[in-house]
């Protein structure tokens, strides 16, 4: 499954606004989209509860994975939101 490992540059991490934008973008994908913090277990990137529960903060490393058509483009979009 294609993945991106990034260091989150968003000032507030993946909370509130970036979290909502992140989940909205992931939810448009047909396939599986997951996000994991550090070496932790991946959770669904389509669930706002799961993403908020990860408690990703500025400077944390996350791994975003997606499968299916358009996975690379989606990962670019998600990485962009995490770093906005």
């Amino acid at each position: 499954m294609p993945e991106r490992r990034i260091t989150v540059e968003s000032e507030v991490g993946l909370h509130a606004r970036p979290a909502a934008l992140f989940v909205e973008a992931a939810s448009k994908a047909e396939g599986n989209v997951t996000v994991a913090k550090g070496g932790g277990a991946p959770v669904s990137a389509k669930s706002i509860l799961a993403v908020m529960g990860l408690d990703v903060r500025n400077g944390d490393e996350i791994v975003i994975s997606a499968d299916g058509d358009g996975a690379e483009e989606l990962l670019d979009t998600l990485a962009g939101i995490a770093n906005a």
Binding site: H15, A16, L49, M52, G53, D55
Partner: peptide, 28 residues
């Protein structure tokens, strides 16, 4: 209480339904 920030919290019921309470906007 799965998340407790000073300005916001999430409580998840036994069936996994999460409710977010955000105390003010941009209060982070």
């Amino acid at each position: 209480v799965v998340k407790l920030h000073a300005h916001a919290f999430v409580v998840v019921d036994p069936e996994g339904r999460g409710v977010l309470v955000h105390l003010g906007i941009d209060t982070v």
